[in-house]
């Protein structure tokens, strides 16, 4: 196996020069994004440095406590972020998003660890549990935020049609179905596109990482496929879960569509 090239801080400094290309575009086109760009780059650096440090600690500890704590924090932050990305809020949406994020990503990760990978150690072996959950969460976040936003937008903007169906005797589910279908599609399209593009248009991140770390390409490809399937499962579970939760939140006990509960925010 080829030795792994260690990245030094100087190397990362050189990589950061590439962000300058972004800054140059900003300057030439006067996009006014300079400050945000700088903040985003610094934020990414700080977050990854922290992640590296925390994972270092987690990898050293034994027992499930540390892994559970890290994964709970990750899932909670992802659940909050999924709502914050959207343009609409409804009371209870943060709890719903966090709950859906936890259930979908934990279910899929557990299945992946215990059934598919059948890892040699306990389920909380950080080497497997943390990166797998991280990949699943990052992508489930996308599906959940898109699906949630599409559902709330649909109920808000398509109120007349939803109420038309309600007024003619539709159940809540019958009236909400067109909105829910559109929202599910919106949430799942990115992962469908990713599965189509993978290997032809793009070399995905996890496979890139494994190849750079010296792993055999065949193994890297198999791991990538496993991850893609896990992500697809989590996105499907999460998207369906969150749009059904959105449905519950915007209808009341008499199946009335309560658009007065939906609040628009600048996203």
């Amino acid at each position: 196996m080829i030795a792994i090239v260690q990245l030094t801080l100087t190397d990362l400094g050189l990589a950061a020069l590439l962000v300058l290309a972004n800054a140059a575009v900003d300057l030439i086109l006067r996009l006014g994004l300079g400050r945000r760009l700088l903040l985003a780059a610094v934020r990414a650096a700080v977050q990854l440095a922290l992640l590296g440090w925390v994972l270092g600690l987690v990898f050293e500890t034994e027992g499930p406590g540390a892994v559970l704590l890290v994964t709970l924090v990750m899932a909670t932050v992802a659940g909050v972020e999924a709502v914050r990305r959207g343009s609409r809020r409804v009371p209870g949406v943060f709890a719903a998003s966090i709950g859906v994020m936890l259930v979908s990503s934990f279910a899929v990760t557990s299945y992946g660890l215990l059934v598919v990978l059948d890892i040699p150690g306990p389920w909380y072996t950080p080497q497997y549990a943390v990166p797998l959950l991280g990949m699943v969460l990052g992508n489930a976040l996308n599906g959940i935020s898109l699906g949630l936003d599409a559902a709330l937008e649909g109920f808000d903007e398509d109120r007349a049609r939803v109420e038309l169906l309600l007024a003619h005797g539709a159940t809540r589910r019958q009236a909400a179905a067109p909105v829910l279908r559109r929202a599910a599609r919106r949430g799942m399209i990115p992962i469908l596109n990713a599965m189509i593009a993978v290997g032809v248009i793009s070399v995905p991140g996890m496979m890139t990482g494994q190849l750079l770390a010296g792993e055999d390409p065949g193994t890297a490809a198999r791991y990538q496929l496993f991850i893609l399937f896990a992500i697809a499962g989590a996105v499907a579970l999460g998207t369906v879960g969150v749009i059904l939760a959105a449905e519950r939140l915007v209808f009341d006990e008499r199946d009335r569509l309560r658009v007065d509960r939906i609040r628009r925010v600048d996203s």
């Binding site: 038309l164 169906l165 007024a167 003619h168 005797g169 539709a170 159940t171 009335r256």
Partner: peptide
């Protein structure tokens, strides 16, 4: 139950919104 009530006490909305599709499909859906 709400669907039973609304089938009996029928509301025709202001602005007469329509469902997607043709006139025939609108009637068929309802």
């Amino acid at each position: 139950p709400p669907p039973v009530w609304r089938r009996a006490v029928r509301y025709a909305q202001q602005g007469a919104p329509c469902l997607p599709g043709t006139v025939e499909e609108n009637v068929a859906a309802v």
